[in-house]
Nucleic acid binder design. Structure first.
Lengths: 150, 150
DNA sequence: TCCAATCGTTATGACTCATAGCAGTATAGG
DNA sequence: CCTATACTGCTATGAGTCATAACGATTGGA
C-alpha cells in the first residue's frame, strides 16, 4: 500500500487538516444515518427554524453562511417533506416566514439524537475540555470569513 | 440584519464548526490567490509528488483521501499544465509514475508561499501552541475516517 | 494456470458553492 | 409625494467536490 510517504508538509497545514477532519465527519454521519435521512444542512436549518420561529430565508442563510440563491432549494426540500411551513409576513410582504410543523419538530428530535451520537463517536479521542478548546479555535478561524451575500 | 438569532445548539457542534472553519479557509485562499492560480487540492498533490518522486496516482489518492476515479482528472490537470510528467513504471506496467517538472517545482515554491501567507492570515487569532493543539485535535478526529477506496 | 487484487480509466449522479440577473416590496431622502 | 437604493425570494448556470459502478490490462499468489 506504499504507506511510507513523506507528508510532513501537509500535516502542518491547518487548511488541509481542517478539510480532512470535516470530510471525516461528513462521511461518518452518512455511514451511520438511516438511508434517506435528512442531510446535516437540512438538520441544522430545521434546528435553527425551530429555535427562531418565523425566521426569514435570508436570515437563516446569513446565520448559516449560505447564500440566498442556494437557500431556495434547501427550504423547498424541508417544505416538500412537510417539516416546515412557509407563510407570508404581515409586516413585510417580501418575507416568507418559516416555522416547523409538528412532524418537523419530531424529525428535529430524532435528528438531534443522531447528531449527538455522531458527535460523541467522532470526538471520542478528545475529552470535554479539549472539545471546548477545539470549538474555540474553530470559531476564531471562522471569524475571518467575510460573508457578503451577493 | 436580524443578527439576534438563537444559535446556541449549532455553536456546540464540532461538525458544524468544522464545516464553517473549513469553508472560511477555502474562501480566504480563493480571495487572495491570483486569478487562475492552482487550487489547494492541486497544490497539495504537487507538493506530495515533489516529496515522493515516482509516486503512483493510487498512492497519492490514498494519502490525500481521494478516490482513484477522482484522481484521474486532477492528475491530468497538473500534466496538462506541464507541472508534472507521467511515465510508465519499469517494474509494474499498471502504474504510472508521477514526477514534478522544473516548472512544476517553481510553481510548488510559489504556491507554498501563498499557502504560508494564507495560513498565517487565518490562524492570526491563535498562537503557535494553540495551532499545534488544533492540528492534534483535527488529526484525532480524522482518525475515525475509514478510507476504503472503492 | 486460474483467480483475486490492483491500477488507470470512463461515466454518471448527488451535493456544495458562487455569480448574475429579475420582479416585487420597503424605506429613506429630496 | 417620488425616486433612488436596498432587500427578499427566485431562476439559471457553471465550477468544484464527492461517491458508485463498471471495464480492460496487469500482477501475483494459490
Amino acid at each position: 500500500m506504499a504507506a511510507d510517504l513523506d507528508t510532513t508538509w501537509l500535516d502542518g497545514l491547518v487548511g488541509y487538516r481542517l478539510r480532512r477532519a470535516s470530510h471525516a465527519m461528513a462521511t461518518d454521519f452518512a455511514a451511520h444515518a438511516p438511508p434517506g435521512h435528512l442531510r446535516p444542512v437540512l438538520i441544522t436549518m430545521l434546528g435553527l427554524i425551530e429555535a427562531n420561529p418565523g425566521i426569514s430565508s435570508a436570515s437563516l442563510g446569513a446565520a448559516l453562511g449560505i447564500k440566498r440563491a442556494n437557500m431556495v432549494a434547501l427550504v423547498a426540500q424541508l417544505a416538500d417533506d412537510d417539516l416546515i411551513e412557509r407563510s407570508e409576513s404581515s409586516t413585510d410582504r417580501r418575507i416568507v416566514e418559516l416555522r416547523v410543523t409538528s412532524s418537523g419538530a419530531e424529525a428535529a428530535v430524532a435528528s438531534r439524537a443522531l447528531i449527538a451520537e455522531h458527535e460523541a463517536r467522532m470526538t471520542s479521542g478528545l475529552n470535554g475540555r479539549e472539545v471546548r478548546q477545539l470549538l474555540g479555535f474553530l470559531a476564531r478561524i471562522s471569524d475571518h470569513d467575510d460573508i457578503d451575500d451577493d
